[in-house]
């Protein structure tokens, strides 16, 4: 097993990604950060990530498409949805399509760390 988790982080708001990337790197993850969902989608098609963290509401490509692509590429990939517009319908759709978890914005770095730790645990990484 690899030492570090490979994470793709996608949010069209630069401030979100720039804030979360160091949080994830601090707990020992390799993070590829994207603001453009199309570029993120291309990268997902190229590489199997352990974890994909994606916003939902984005121009051109939405988070559900990212979720579907990531799960199609690898059903082991854990997809975590982050959104400021959470609804029951959205939550259920995301879970139904294989999301690992969903977090509503605003959230703290601790909230994200806790979800990442759960995802890492289910991937067999015990020491995150």
């Amino acid at each position: 097993m690899k030492e570090k988790l490979d994470i793709l982080l996608l949010d069209d708001e630069a401030i979100v990604g720039n804030r979360l990337k160091p949080v994830l790197e601090k707990v020992g993850c390799d993070v590829e950060l994207f603001e453009d969902p199309k570029k993120a989608l291309n990268r997902i098609r190229e590489k199997k990530f352990d974890i994909v963290i994606t916003d939902i509401m984005m121009p051109d490509v939405n988070g559900i498409q990212i979720l579907e692509e990531a799960r199609e590429k690898s059903d082991i990939t854990k997809v975590i949805i982050i959104t400021g517009y959470a609804t029951v319908a959205m939550a259920r759709e995301a879970m139904d399509k294989g999301a690992f978890d969903m977090i509503a914005k605003p959230f703290t770095p601790d909230d994200l760390r806790s979800v990442i730790a759960k995802a890492a645990d289910s991937l067999g990484y015990k020491k995150l």
Binding site: A91, D101, M102, A104
Partner: peptide, 13 residues
Amino acid sequence: EHKKFQPMTYSLR
């Protein structure tokens, strides 16, 4: 048993 009825961070919050 459908996954959509499983708890998640958002719904627990």
